[in-house]
């Protein structure tokens, strides 16, 4: 094998300034980073390794769309060591980034199609990148009808509330919001995502592509509901989560069958998942 010595250090992160931190829920914040006149080279569905010096790295999906110039956004749930450290950062602090990594949502298969987005909780973060890509004024006419179904455990757990309002106001998409349990102020739909999907969304399953992301249990039952509605496995697209370190298919952690989720994924169709060991 030829050796390329010109190669850069693939593990070296670049530090970017945090422009803004947007609190989403009690344990989720969105971090907007300043790319300083650069534009991000990522495509919807990709992720990056975020590095906090002295603490470590965590793989986080990129929630901003590449059509948003000069910035990168990550919505992060405070869960482990690194995400807790990221939550302690302030505006103007610097955060290390390497990436973008992974495959993307299959954009060429999605153009000229009707798109049904289904997200649960923080699972909206990776989908938001694609949704805003599709809704961009220059891109919107490349896609047909767009329906978004978004659910969370409670009204307090909804993320991107400011964005949801923007989507609700658009007349070129259908937007449905649901929560598992409402509260005194909640006037919207109450119900689990798979149930709301079956009851409220009437589409011709052979004419639509569905892109879903959320907690594993929600994905499982949503896929079941979509299949009942008549969706075909290649038309159901989702993303997998695995523990990752390198992001480049070398460290071995995210290996499932002959695939590395960090390199060959994280986006897979349900048809691909059916042919993979269920080890995720």
């Amino acid at each position: 094998m030829a050796i390329d010595l010109e190669n850069k250090n693939i593990y070296l992160p670049r530090l970017y300034r945090i422009m803004e931190i947007i609190p989403e829920t009690s344990d989720i914040k969105t971090f907007r980073l300043d790319l300083e006149d650069e534009n991000s080279s990522h495509l919807p569905g990709q992720f990056a390794e975020l590095f906090v010096p002295g603490v470590g790295e965590a793989p986080i999906s990129i929630t901003s769309s590449p059509t948003q110039k000069g910035i990168l956004e990550f919505s992060i749930k405070r869960t482990g060591l690194v995400t807790s450290a990221i939550h302690r950062l302030n505006s103007n602090d610097r955060l290390g980034i390497r990436g973008p990594y992974g495959n993307t949502f299959p954009l060429s298969d999605l153009t000229e199609q009707n798109l049904l987005f289904i997200a649960g909780g923080i699972g909206l973060a990776p989908l938001r990148s694609l949704i805003n890509f599709v809704l961009d004024t220059e891109k919107r006419n490349q896609f047909k009808k767009v329906t978004i179904l978004y659910g969370a455990r409670s009204p307090q757990d909804l993320v991107f509330k400011w964005e949801l309002k923007r989507w609700q106001m658009r007349d070129d998409i259908t937007f449905l919001l649901t929560v598992d349990r409402g509260d005194d102020q909640w006037k919207g739909t109450v119900g689990l995502v798979p149930n709301v999907l079956k009851e409220n969304i009437q589409v011709d399953p052979l004419e639509w592509k569905s892109i879903i992301c959320g907690p594993p249990i929600m994905i499982k039952f949503t896929i079941k509901a979509l299949l009942e509605m008549g969706f075909q496995p290649p038309d159901i697209i989702t993303t997998l989560e695995m523990r990752m370190k390198c992001g480049l298919g070398k460290c071995g952690r995210c290996n499932i069958g002959p695939y590395y989720v960090c390199k060959d994924g994280p986006v897979f169709t349900y048809q691909q998942l059916q042919n993979m060991p269920e080890e995720y």
Partner: peptide
């Protein structure tokens, strides 16, 4: 090992230098 660490476009520079 060469097939893992010398993958084109994702060559690990430390490994490549030692390998060279």
């Amino acid at each position: 090992l060469d097939r893992v660490f010398l993958q084109p476009s994702e060559t690990e520079s430390g490994y490549a230098a030692r390998r060279q």
